[in-house]
């Protein structure tokens, strides 16, 4: 597929699916479940830009997600910011924190970098818990009194549509990063940072671009969360479940291309939603754990990796 066709196709497909859903599904639970799955697709796609393409494992996805959510809370408290304004500002805030965190931590490699991101997440959590303006540990409400814009029948459907468009955007960005000259440089860093630097790759700059883009997309996915839930509190927005899922989904789907996180998030996100309704919400992380063990042992390169091997075998025979 030619690169310039990819983005229009992704957006067209997204709009068609959304239009079909809005025309046929009236059950509001569907939109809530779909919103959550889409949110995970963005988180997984964003995580993969730094984790899969660049080789730096971020354990603080929940922090970037919360940065997006709480930026929206602040803007809403200040001047009742509408969703289309909250999204870019939240993304910018999370992107800037990504840049700053990257600058401070990118000299660390491997497990040390992962621990630093986990620590950053805890620091931000403590900060939010003690910040009264955004409700501290009690949380904050966003009560939407006006009717949803653009003729949507309710806010859930409106925000679901917004989320779907943001997902298409995130996938387009991930695919661009992966297939561009930038992506080649990031892959070189992932394989061998010293050799990359000695081959002309400006490693620090590329890593900072990677942390910024990844952080901004995560912030974007969190920006609509308070509007959607109408309530946000730090324990749930900083939940380990976001950080773990953002890692598990690309691992299961495959980390070397944009399609991996998409497939992993759809699979894992949907299973979790089904289990939550049919069995119990306490089972969620257990399922993630079991699937991770299965995939790490049976298909270490994820579903996409397994698919590539299968195709290569078929070509040879």
């Amino acid at each position: 597929m030619k690169a310039r066709w990819f983005t229009p196709i992704v957006f067209t497909v997204t709009l068609l699916v959304v239009a079909l859903a809005l025309a046929t599904v009236t059950n509001n639970y569907f939109y809530t479940a779909a919103y959550i799955v889409l949110q995970f697709i963005i988180l997984a796609t964003a995580w993969n830009i730094l984790g899969g393409l660049t080789g730096y494992v971020n354990f603080g996805s929940a922090a970037f997600f919360s940065l997006g959510a709480y930026s929206s809370v602040v803007m809403f408290s200040l001047f009742k910011a509408p969703v289309p304004l909250a999204i870019p500002v939240s993304a910018a805030v999370a992107g800037l924190v990504g840049l700053g965190a990257g600058y401070l931590t990118l000299r660390l490699r491997g497990v040390f970098f992962a621990i630093a991101t986990l620590a950053m997440s805890e620091v931000l959590y403590t900060f939010v818990v003690n910040w009264d303006y955004v409700g501290g540990a009690r949380g904050a409400y966003i009560i939407l009194q006006d009717d949803p814009p653009f003729g949507f029948s309710n806010h859930t459907q409106y925000l679901f549509t917004v989320m779907a468009l943001m997902t298409a955007f995130a996938i387009a960005v991930a695919r661009y990063v992966e297939t561009s000259r930038l992506g080649r440089g990031l892959a070189a860093i992932r394989d061998d940072e010293v050799a990359a630097e000695c081959s002309g790759v400006p490693t620090l700059r590329l890593k900072l671009i990677s942390t910024t883009v990844s952080g901004a997309l995560m912030g974007m996915s969190g920006s609509t969360f308070p509007y959607f839930m109408q309530y946000v509190e730090p324990t749930s927005s900083f939940s380990l479940s976001y950080s773990v899922n953002a890692i598990a989904m690309p691992l299961i789907g495959g980390m070397h291309s944009w399609a991996g996180p998409l497939i992993g998030a759809i699979l894992l996100g949907t299973i979790q939603q089904i289990v939550q309704v049919t069995v119990s919400s306490a089972w969620n992380l257990l399922i993630v754990g079991v699937l991770l063990v299965v995939f790490v042992t049976l298909a270490p390169d994820g579903i996409m990796g397994w698919f590539d091997h299968w195709r290569a075998r078929r070509r040879r025979s």
Binding site: A187, A188, R190, D191, D192, A195, H256
Partner: peptide, 9 residues
């Protein structure tokens, strides 16, 4: 001295 290829490429 010790080859450092981009091994996954």
């Amino acid at each position: 001295q010790l080859p450092r290829p981009f091994a996954a490429m």
